[in-house]
């Protein structure tokens, strides 16, 4: 359903990821693991089209994705970047509405739906997004990505800088989204517990390439790999 083949790219003349191939089936939750700086975020940006491809293709819902990020969004690629990047001088409502409208969905209905799904945002609906806490911004960035009604959701370090109680809540929310709306999720993380709690399958990255593919049970059993990923 979501398939990246031979992804090679980076910034300027520096190639950061080489020949990365990943496949996420419809309705699946897959984790992308690896220590800091192995190229997880670069891979995510490659998939969205925000960095230029040196080589490789991206397939969304059976279609080869065109290079423009806006067109990929319309094919059903939702993206929650590391660091959230909500639109700071727009209200919570506007952040969601603009995403819906840009993809031809009714902004009002979408905002109502998202506020119902994420009650945490309700009291903040009229506030500027720049004034929200880190956790609230993370939830807003997620709601904004869901407003485009994606087939596949890319989450880049969603637990970074978020307090533990909200991390647990987030795992629940992601599972619910996955089951209720049949949205596939690819999540890049360093938080191993969080990944093990939601993902059935995982890719492990190292030095800009995929080192191995594994599933939840083998990962749980493989203490040596866990140690390595946790960087202890």
């Amino acid at each position: 359903m979501f398939k990246v083949t031979g992804a090679t790219g980076g910034y300027g003349k520096t190639t950061i990821i080489r020949d990365v191939s990943i496949n996420v089936e419809a309705g699946e939750i897959v984790a992308l693991l690896g220590r800091n700086g192995v190229g997880k975020s670069t891979f995510m940006r490659f998939a969205t089209g925000l960095i230029k491809a040196e080589a490789g293709t991206v397939e969304i819902g059976g279609e080869i994705a065109p290079p423009a990020p806006a067109k990929r969004a319309r094919l059903g690629l939702g993206y929650v970047p590391q660091g959230r990047f909500v639109f700071p001088r727009m209200t919570v409502t506007e952040n969601i509405a603009v995403a819906a409208a840009a993809n031809g969905f009714d902004p009002k209905a979408t905002v109502a739906e998202m506020l119902e799904d994420f009650p945490l945002l309700q009291p903040k609906a009229g506030d500027l997004a720049g004034g929200l806490s880190g956790g609230q911004q993370q939830v807003l960035a997620l709601a904004r990505a869901l407003a485009i009604r994606p087939k596949i959701l890319l989450l880049d370090e969603p637990t970074e800088g978020v307090q533990p109680s909200i991390i647990d809540e987030m795992a629940g929310v992601l599972k619910r989204i996955n089951q209720d709306h049949k949205i596939a999720i690819l999540v890049a993380e360093q938080n191993l517990d969080f990944c093990l709690s939601i993902a059935e399958r995982a890719y492990v990255m190292e030095k800009g390439a995929i080192r191995m593919e594994t599933d939840r049970d083998s990962l749980r059993a493989d203490k040596a790999l866990q140690q390595e990923l946790l960087g202890v």
Partner: peptide, 16 residues
């Protein structure tokens, strides 16, 4: 406004 505040994210959510 989205396009000037976060140009890359604006594109990533489908704004031309």
């Amino acid at each position: 406004r989205a396009s000037i505040q976060e140009p890359q994210m604006a594109q990533a959510i489908g704004i031309d």
